[in-house]
Write a protein that binds this DNA or RNA. Structure first.
Lengths: 345, 345
DNA sequence: CTGTTAGCGCTTTCAC
DNA sequence: GTGAAAGCGCTAACAG
């Protein structure tokens, strides 16, 4: 911490009381114009800025928001954080970001630290591993506003902001089917979070609506906890698919990392996209167009998700709505078709 | 803020004094085993966690680090933040991240907010726009530890951690020359920060060492403040280059964004890489391999930069070295040659 | 071994 | 209009 000018210093310098200074700086009606003037001038000149810790302690809040994400080093998350930060800054909240690294235990540690740090609320996109939301629920019951974003769970009742994963997955699968692909494999993550199940369900529904039988062997889940493992799981899954007697002619991938890694791996393994196998996946990379081949994507409104989640949280914190009617918002995704799913017709 | 259990609550419940509780929890030698036991038990059971605001206020520090970057939505920065977070977490520091969005004014606001928020130190990668470091210097003189990372400036004397941009640029240019390219253009940003000048100098030096005359018309600087502008500047620059009578056969790009955008634009404009024009650039994207064509890159050790910068800052904060001998560390970059700079020979 | 007290910087009631 | 004093939760010097 720093040794900046305090109210006390100004009071001493101007021969006034601390409370007079405080009131002047808060533009209280009790203080004369003259005094205010003097105080403001002095404060400005000496770069006074209130100590947030003291203020927070006194007021019982810190004007800070805790954000828990699986990782910072991730395109989609960075975009969401950007959105969160934009709204937070506009409302004079600081954000404190912590990484769970997909570990439930570390996530709990993050939450605890944020709570003890006196954050006014928590924005969280849970780790893939996380199944137990009781700690979060207990904090919520203790009065801490919590908003889930991106990865949702029905284990806790609060505002939730996500993408319409079901629809996104449905649209992607439908796009493949309409482009002439019938044997569609699906690569997903091994998590119980909504994000995975919804995407799987969208995929299944599209098959069903097109009278294509769902083949369990065309579904593979990969370990998302570390990149190394993900890569090897993916490679194994691809080889498995391609060695099936009735092998798939397209893959729909469920997450940003899986989509881009999968493209890289297919190229590496010498498969030709989309002739050997077509590919479409959830990802927000700016480089989709420049990939080899240009990658068809399901785009998530990540920035907007962050913005909305932050807005929801701040409204909870400031109790703009008395008795919050919790809601789950699902923002629309959109399909961007490119060469990797070129029509067979 | 939250209404968690306080020392007072525990004291009341156990019929002990507040200070006894405090000492027990801090494992003071003054307290009997029995009492400690009881207190610890109660604290654990009721999820006591110390209020960081109060503790910070009392101790004159907050165990938090302010981080100022141009943007969250940026690959390389995300990697650096990841590194910073790793080290900070390991040392029980929280990080508070703020975005300058390349605006000098907004950057100053960030710094002020962090300072008044009582951060123990600041890690900053300045905005492109920033030329005036006097505010930062004044905070430093007031005792606030500051470490610059990634984008450095000689306007302030402190620890600095960056990449060896000169060498990286030199190597990239040399790689082009050795691959048979002689008319090498350079795309850079319009900033006075070291990051731009060093890369330019590395480029120039490589030309010089290869007895190739530096042609000012082959250098273009782009406005980095917003993506829109950057894109149009880039397109204009590319068209300008390609319409020169003695047009370049290769481009060396100075930043992550410029490199990837440039590839996309060259493809869009119908130029064939590397036949029409070769391309190599600074970027850390994981997708370099999967691009069309695979992009030759200068890779920066972003994660390590973040780690080291955080370490340096924490050592300043904790005054492990009494009278700090400030140093500037430049981490090595490395070239990864791929199809976009295929040898002409 | 345990308790009392002061004080970190700030806001806010209540006196003057 | 201005000031004195209490208190937010915590630590630490000092008493007992």
């Amino acid at each position: 911490m720093n040794n900046s000018v305090t109210l006390k210093d100004i009071a001493k310098a101007l021969n006034l009381s601390i409370s007079t200074i405080s009131k002047s700086l808060n533009d209280s009606y009790e203080i004369s114009i003259d005094t205010k003037q003097k105080v403001l001038e002095y404060a400005q000149k000496h770069h006074y800025s209130p100590n947030r810790l003291a203020k927070g302690l006194k007021e019982g809040k810190s004007r800070s928001i805790g954000v828990v994400v699986c990782s910072l080093d991730n395109n989609v998350i960075a975009q969401m954080l950007d959105g969160i930060d934009t709204v937070s800054s506009d409302n004079s909240y600081q954000i404190i970001i912590m990484q769970s690294k997909e570990s439930e235990k570390q996530e709990a540690a993050c939450i605890e630290l944020l709570y003890s740090g006196g954050v006014d609320g928590i924005l969280i996109s849970p780790a893939c591993e996380t199944v137990d939301f009781s700690y979060l629920r207990s904090l919520q019951e203790a009065g801490l506003p919590i908003v889930l974003f991106d990865r949702l769970s029905d284990q806790i009742n609060t505002h939730k902001v996500g993408a319409d994963n079901f629809q996104g997955a449905y649209d992607a699968t439908m796009h493949l089917i309409k482009s002439g692909y019938k044997n569609i494999a699906h690569l997903n993550t091994n998590t119980t979070l909504s994000i995975a199940t919804e995407r799987l369900n969208g995929y299944k529904q599209a098959l069903k609506d097109s009278n294509i039988a769902y083949r369990p062997e065309l579904l593979r889940s990969c370990d998302y906890s570390d990149t190394q493992k993900l890569n090897s799981d993916l490679e194994e899954a691809i080889l498995y698919f391609m060695n099936l007697s009735d092998k798939p002619d397209a893959i729909f991938t469920a997450t940003d990392q899986i989509s881009t890694r999968c493209l890289t791996l297919l190229n590496k393994l010498g498969y030709h996209i989309p002739d050997d196998i077509a590919l479409i996946g959830f990802t927000n990379t700016d480089l989709a167009e420049a990939l080899s081949p240009a990658l068809s994507t399901v785009h998530q409104p990540a920035f907007e998700m962050g913005q909305l989640a932050a807005k929801k949280l701040i409204s909870l914190i400031e109790r703009k709505d008395q008795d919050p009617e919790y809601e789950t918002v699902m923002l629309e995704t959109y399909i961007k078709a490119r060469a990797s799913t070129q029509s067979k017709h």
